[in-house]
Design a protein around this nucleic acid. Sequence first.
DNA 1: ATCTAATGTTGACATCGTAAACATAACTCT
DNA 2: AGAGTTATGTTTACGATGTCAACATTAGAT
Lengths: 197, 197
Amino acid sequence: MSTSRPKKRSYHHGDLEAALIRSAGNILEKEGLEALSLRETARRAGVSHNAPYRHFAEREALLAALAREGFERLGAAQREAADKGGLRAMGEAYVLFALEHPQRFRLMFGGQISIARHEKLRDVATKTFAGLSGALAARVPEAQGARDASIAAWALVHGLALLLMGDRIASAAMNGRERKAFVRDVLASVRFAAGAA
Amino acid sequence: MSTSRPKKRSYHHGDLEAALIRSAGNILEKEGLEALSLRETARRAGVSHNAPYRHFAEREALLAALAREGFERLGAAQREAADKGGLRAMGEAYVLFALEHPQRFRLMFGGQISIARHEKLRDVATKTFAGLSGALAARVPEAQGARDASIAAWALVHGLALLLMGDRIASAAMNGRERKAFVRDVLASVRFAAGAA
DNA sequence: ATCTAATGTTGACATCGTAAACATAACTCT
DNA sequence: AGAGTTATGTTTACGATGTCAACATTAGAT
């Protein structure tokens, strides 16, 4: 667990930016977004409370970096699932990612950070979604219907993830199934139709 | 615009709790959740910064009251839609509610408040969802399949609402349609199957 | 009318985000 | 190698916030 830092640093840290993102990521996942303050992050990285400002213009910029990391990981998980199990696996992977990293997922989609305002974040996020809807649209060879269906599919997994995360689904509904099986069954209860009136 | 208050109150306000909820609601919808502080709420209600503590144990309790109001309104909108246009209308109403009250919706589902910890909130929320899934389950006369499908339907509208709110849907995908029409088409691109493998 | 509980107010404290001024190390150019 | 410049940390300071404790005022019950 000990990240072996090669040299003992005095004034200049060496790679503060990465260290800050790491500290912040830990706080986020273990204590939640509310507990994630710039000052605490600095404390854990062993620097003064204002050092982060050399690397992040404001608190939101740090959050944006964490969100970006999240989109990258989600994208990777999606690609991996696409290879192994196709579309259905991608949907399941989406939901499982959210359930395994709820705080991260909330940061990514909770609307606390303005995605549009952070360039790199925006690019990565866009790319991730393009992969998702591209995979779906490729299966339904009709222009608008396919696009609508791919958005419906995305909305479905996205909504299911959030409802599960928020404990909004009564345990009775799970009916004894494991979460993974439950997700599979729910997703399987849906059919996408290209041109529906 | 002037809420005509009958009497000029000196020390005791008369109905501070309601006034606070009103002020807070205004801040929430106009300036967003981040701008919603206890102190600002008190200021707008014309009382000292600590007066709210006589009515709300903590900030989160005020937020919970706002969320509860939201669930009540969502539930009402759902019931109304159910009468007029059946299931499909309920789905559309759900999404439209979210788009018309994005900040409120975020508060209700953003995970900032622990729903379970606030009794009244929990009850109202549960009741609202029971109405939703009940309406759906009634249409598919098979136990588990129906339940899964009803959750899928809910997830679908929920996810679509959040994606639209977060501007995560490229305008190209809307293809010139009005938002309402777009929602209708996307929802229409999905079929629910009771027992799917 | 008096006592008590409810409701508001004042003052205080720790924490936070952020800005400005300062300190130190690293890099560049000669 | 030495001087000047830039990047990176630190200190100090300010206003805002949530919350606590002590106090003030009023409404209701006796």
